[in-house]
Computed example of a mutant assay.
Amino acid sequence: MDSRLHIIAGYKEGKSYVKDLYVSPPFRVVSVGQRKKDHKLYQIVMSSSPGILDGDRYQLDIALEKGAALQLQSQSYQRLFNMKDRAVQQLNISMQDNTSFAYVPHPVVPHEDSNFKSKAEVNIGENSQIIISEIITCGRKHYGELFKLTRFQNLTEIYHKDQLVVKDNILIQPDLIPIKSIGNLEEYTHQGTLIFYTTKKHVDKNALIETIYTHIELQNEMEVGISAMEDNGFIIRTLGHGGEVMYNFFLTVQEILWALE
């Protein structure tokens, strides 16, 4: 199935709003956060499908006009079903100046023989910031599906002024790369990645990292590492045995970063 989602977030009179919206099945987009007083835009992406199926092609186009702030939320865990071929997803995010975008979705659950490739391409303007994450699980652990997927890849590229500033490539292919080997996931079953990048000059990334570390020290259910970028940004990696713990931690990080002005 070819499926499309297209959102343009506009900005007028100090408020972000949905300027244009188009979806095709199985997508549906619903506004949330109406009671918030920050005048930012909150949208939840829902689906009538139980998950991503063989042959599915998802095209998501997100645009933020100058001044807009958009936070996308997911409905539930994303399941990748058994596949004979593969499924693909393309996410394009266009951010004008003075914009903020965040997308911290629920974990992905790859079933046995699933084959999925996702690419996110971001173009970010001046005085702007993006928060984007992903959590990949081992599969249906209680059914004995420990990394029985065929292949999973998620490529993220962030561009500023037509120059590549961030590139992150997650590839899990058990028949090619032993998942439990040293340097890979070893004894862990879940992996998470959160990318924060900003072109705001006044943001102190080191202070933000220190704040996040105070939350890391409060938990002992997963391993967490933070790598600072040369510019104002960082990447958080997590390893553990449960998706919900990682997801809630990423929501906490999102809350900290989303409050930046």
Rank of each mutant, 00 (worst) to 15 (best):
H241Q: 12
K200V: 12
A120M: 01
D61V: 07
S128F: 04
G242R: 06
E187I: 15
V108H: 07
H160N: 08
K167W: 01
S3I: 06
I216W: 12
P50A: 09
D97H: 04
Y197I: 13
Y213V: 14
G242S: 11
F152G: 03
Y188F: 10
G240H: 10
V253I: 14
T99C: 06
V88I: 05
I7E: 01
N248R: 11
W258K: 05
V203I: 15
L21Y: 02
D2N: 10
I195M: 08
E65V: 00
Q89N: 08
G10D: 01
S31A: 04
I235F: 09
L5W: 02
N206I: 07
E157N: 04
G144E: 07
S128Q: 04
Q96P: 02
S100T: 11
E230T: 14
V109E: 00
N92S: 02
K141M: 14
V104G: 03
E157C: 03
E255D: 14
N248V: 11
E121M: 05
G183S: 02
V224M: 10
L70R: 08
N248M: 13
V165A: 13
V104A: 09
L218Y: 12
P178L: 01
V245Y: 09
Y159V: 03
K40W: 11
I235E: 09
L60W: 13
N127P: 00
L70T: 01
H106A: 08
T214L: 15
I136E: 03
F81N: 02
I195P: 04
R35E: 05
E230Q: 13
D175Y: 04
L257E: 02
N206F: 11
K37F: 13
I195A: 10
L149F: 03
M83A: 10
I44C: 11
S94C: 01
Q71E: 09
E221Y: 03
P178N: 02
V224W: 10
M83S: 08
I52Y: 10
D162Q: 11
I212E: 12
I216L: 13
P50T: 07
L53E: 13
F81I: 15
N206S: 10
I182F: 06
W258M: 04
Q129W: 14
L53M: 14
P110W: 00
M229K: 11
P107D: 01
S227H: 08
